[in-house]
């Protein structure tokens, strides 16, 4: 993969530019944000979104799409706020079973050649239903360790940023340095040739879904650690945010072209976009719309840069 480092690096240019530009704009509007506390507030909710985005990334890497991430993160958050807090052993078992279920879904999708969109759509109902059974009304409380982990105050840089960097590094190692990561991207690139080379596509897809489930569970725990309570709908919007984050970070829907670092940057950009808008004193009515507009601008920028790259390649 290091044959053409420029392409991989180019993929990160636009997301990084977008994040830097947004950050600069925020600092310009509100210089006081340029502090430990300010950054902490700006990126407060970034960690669970980044984890959910990485989960979606693993699914996109095998050319599938997961419409149940938001519901699953909500479910994981509900388990964390109830069982994981009161009876940790049962909580851990439930979460492990949920990850196993995720892996099984991946296997079934591959074995029966089912459309992932529809299966995960069905699963989103199942996860939300389970979450409603666990917590019919908002409530629960986070496990102490999750709370203290999310509220740690490391020196110099706020926890949200430290955690994002660590998460990005871990995912980067899995995707680019492990044989599993190569296999997963290979399946996304050309399923048939991976199969002919003697690898198991079934195993690759199952593993991709299991990884996605693991990251989504982590997102749920992190979310509860931040918000201190959970409800069945707490993370429903993560489904769309996670897709947007991956694409924003330079990932693509097909071809196994994904970038974990980009995905985390994409998630940070989306988080920051929301904070930026409140600094702009844009009425809350337009906040969702402005997020859409920012997404469009970044994608337009990417198209522009891709064209430049192609022209240079020809020259």
């Amino acid at each position: 993969m290091s044959l053409r480092p420029s392409v991989d690096a180019m993929r990160l240019v636009v997301p990084t530019l977008a994040l830097t530009a947004l950050l600069a704009a925020v600092f310009w509007l509100q210089p006081r944000a340029m502090s430990y506390m300010g950054l902490n507030l700006l990126f407060n909710l970034a960690v669970p979104i980044a984890l959910a985005t990485l989960a979606q990334m693993f699914i996109l890497a095998v050319n599938n799409l997961d419409l149940s991430i938001g519901a699953f993160v909500s479910f994981a958050a509900c388990v964390s706020a109830t069982f994981l807090q009161s009876t940790p052993l049962i909580g851990v078992l439930i979460l492990l079973a949920a990850i196993a279920a995720y892996a099984a879904i991946g296997a079934v999708i591959h074995l029966r050649n089912l459309p992932s969109i529809v299966v995960t759509l069905g699963m989103s109902f199942v996860w939300t239903g389970l979450a409603v059974l666990l917590l019919p009304a908002p409530g629960g409380s986070p496990p102490d360790w999750a709370r203290s982990l999310m509220t740690t105050k490391p020196p110099l840089v706020p926890m949200a940023i430290v955690a994002s960097v660590i998460i990005a590094l871990i995912a980067h190692l899995i995707v680019t340095r492990s044989s599993l990561g190569v296999l997963i991207r290979g399946v996304g690139g050309n399923e048939r040739s991976v199969e002919r080379a003697g690898w198991s596509v079934l195993w690759a897809k199952t593993a991709a879904y299991a990884l996605a489930g693991t990251f989504a569970v982590a997102a749920g725990i992190a979310l509860v650690g931040l918000t201190t309570s959970a409800d069945a709908n707490i993370a429903l919007r993560y489904t769309l945010l996670s897709i947007a984050g991956v694409i924003l970070g330079g990932g693509e829907f097909v071809g196994g072209r994904v970038s974990p670092v980009g995905a985390v940057i994409g998630a940070l950009t989306l988080t920051l976009a929301a904070s930026f808008l409140s600094f702009m004193r844009i009425s809350p009515d337009w906040q969702i719309g402005a997020q859409g507009a920012i997404l469009i601008i970044v994608l337009a920028l990417r198209l522009f840069l891709n064209r430049l790259e192609r022209q240079e390649g020809r020259a």
Binding site: V118, G122, F125, V126, G129, A131, V132, L133, P136
Partner: peptide, 17 residues
């Protein structure tokens, strides 16, 4: 209840597929 209803809806969608 609402929870079971959603679970069943999901299971049915997947079963149909």
């Amino acid at each position: 209840g609402a929870g079971f209803r959603m679970i069943m809806t999901g299971v049915i969608i997947i079963a149909v597929i």
